[in-house]
Design a binder for these strands. Structure first.
Lengths: 339, 339
DNA sequence: ACGTTTTACTAAAGCGATTTACCAATTCTA
DNA sequence: TAGAATTGGTAAATCGCTTTAGTAAAACGT
């Protein structure tokens, strides 16, 4: 049926112990000749150990879980690729789960993956408005016996390791850039209420305004859901309030804003300046390339993996939360205010 | 340490066999009282069977593998979401692996996943120019004891189930559209040599030309690699050969072609018509929306899952290969030839 | 030359489930 | 009332690996 360690042992005329020792590079005293022979036979037969058997003994699966709110969003897709790349390089497999931004599914998925026997978990939380549920979730996560790290997002109050861009600083940089161009009526399209990333970016926007002595105006904040369509709607609303510039909490919504500006018969950046957040691949190739806050997705993925890997190999680690420096990329969608 | 079936047995004063039978709803003759007792004890202690032990015996994990060449490509990202959605709805988990379009990694990944104990596999093959290796791969796949279905792509000669768009028909529709607008010097940017999808789409292009009595000119075919940058380079090359229209084998390369046209100081569609393939989300929101061949990604994912599920539940199925009808979406990037 | 190391390897006990084959007592059936 | 069927279970093998505790023979030290 399947080629097992026993078959190698038989072929090499040694015991399974010897084979196991050699193939796992465990300290041993097997002669060089035998070692080579075993390796050759294993390679020739394309031997791969049965992970159930291994896992049953070692309690390890060399598999991690990655929980993402929206894999179809380019940002998360690239994040998935990055994490996958680093974890496969370390000999781990990745189980990917998509939660459609549903916090209840976050919960369910964590449980599911735990019972599938993952060794660790990387999770980009869905937004959750429900404080009580969140706090149950926190308890459950902190009681988990597998290590996990938060990626991109975070739940207020959760003690854990994680990595994300410095969202509020990013929001601040974007807004200050607009202010430096002479804009005063600056609209903000935020992500969904209850989303950690959205709240932080909004915070940055508000801080920038305040620091520059511009009064914060509730009416200039429109709530989106990080999707294109919602950016379009929100921008329409802001345009009606006479803004001359818009800070969109992600690029996708910024694209929606472009469309809204066009709909109103105006032009980016001549009439309206727009700055986004994420720096998706498309932002650079747009006919009017988007000024935006760059997130280094591969570094995000790498650090998330490194944090998890540390804990996998060395359970007693302290929590670390890394915040990556945002990077303002100035392109053609922003310009000095007219008149 | 962990609560096992043995603990339940001890607590209920029965054998592990009895517990196993009850908890798995296997045909048994256990009395109602004992059954209830066992269930209660299991529930009280929050018993979850060790999946390694289960998998070691049953060889089932309720997990499938999805192998994709490039998760960062929006097309595949959406495909992943679609497959994930349908398979989680049926109680399965999905392990996602990215191969970076490396056929050697296809091989390795299949083996890896098999040994991780997946029950089935959905695979979008990487292109492979190496005929000999392909044929080894085919042998290996056909000998596999888990069911698999090919998605989007296919390996020449492989007997299997699968689903994809009708690539060549799509290529033909795109090209005929250009011909109907009066274009004669039509360039084609193909995907990588050896890629099934690329070859089929190219075939459609050639057939359209031939059927319309236009001589096929090798010089008007430029090879890309499905990435933006390669589309840019290829288009530059084609423009040098005086084409008035370009059929790009995917949208990403079509975006590259837009850029090349701009670089040459020309305009889409006034000077150059462009048609793509995939109909990514972005194609519709571009300032000059792209005329393209629409693929229904969610149907692709659904059908792939359905085919696999059929085999999972009912191993004796015959192979089926579904080809989805392509759909030409006419937007603003194509126009009647000048002059 | 005799004890000690080192070298090269092995037997066997798990890991935690499933599953097959069987058993003893009770209840039917003809 | 004897044999068959049913009821209510169990023992033990097995899945494929890791790991501990050896062992026999060769090499070494003095």
């Amino acid at each position: 049926m399947k080629y097992t360690i026993r078959d190698i042992a038989r072929e090499a005329n040694v015991s399974v112990t010897t084979v196991s020792l050699v193939l796992n590079d465990k300290p041993n005293t097997v002669s060089e000749g035998t070692t080579r022979l075993i390796r050759e036979i294993a390679a020739k037969n394309n031997y791969v150990p049965n992970q159930f058997a291994v896992g049953l003994v070692t309690k390890k699966t060399n598999t991690i879980g990655l929980i993402l709110p929206d894999i179809a969003n380019t940002f998360f897709a690239e994040l998935a690729r990055s994490v996958d790349q680093f974890c496969t390089a370390s000999g781990y497999s990745m189980i990917l789960s998509n939660t459609n931004n549903d916090p209840v599914k976050d919960w369910a998925t964590v449980n599911l993956l735990i019972n599938r026997g993952i060794d660790g978990l990387i999770i980009a939380f869905s937004q959750d408005k429900n404080k009580e549920r969140s706090s149950c979730f926190i308890t459950m996560l902190e009681d988990l016996d597998v290590p996990f790290v938060a990626l991109d997002s975070w739940i207020e109050g959760l003690k854990c390791s994680g990595v994300s861009i410095h969202h509020s600083k990013g929001g601040m940089m974007a807004t200050k850039h607009l202010i430096s161009l002479g804009h005063i009526k600056i609209g903000c399209i935020t992500g969904p209420r209850g989303s950690y990333t959205a709240e932080r970016r909004l915070k940055g926007y508000i801080n920038a305004l305040t620091e520059s002595g511009i009064a914060f105006d509730e009416d200039l904040v429109a709530v989106g859901n990080y999707q294109f369509e919602s950016g379009f709607e929100a921008a329409l609303h802001l345009l009606d309030h006479g803004v001359t510039a818009i800070f969109a909490s992600n690029d996708l919504m910024a694209y929606g804003a472009y469309q809204a500006v066009q709909e109103r018969g105006m032009k980016v950046p001549d009439d309206i300046s727009i700055v986004g957040f994420d720096d998706l691949f498309f932002s650079a190739i747009l006919p009017t390339p988007l000024t935006t806050i760059h997130q280094s997705i591969s570094i995000l993925g790498e650090q998330a993996w490194n944090l998890l890997y540390d804990r996998l190999k060395n359970s007693g680690r302290e929590n670390e939360y890394h915040q990556l420096e945002p990077n303002l990329i100035i392109r053609n969608s922003t310009k000095v205010r007219k008149g």
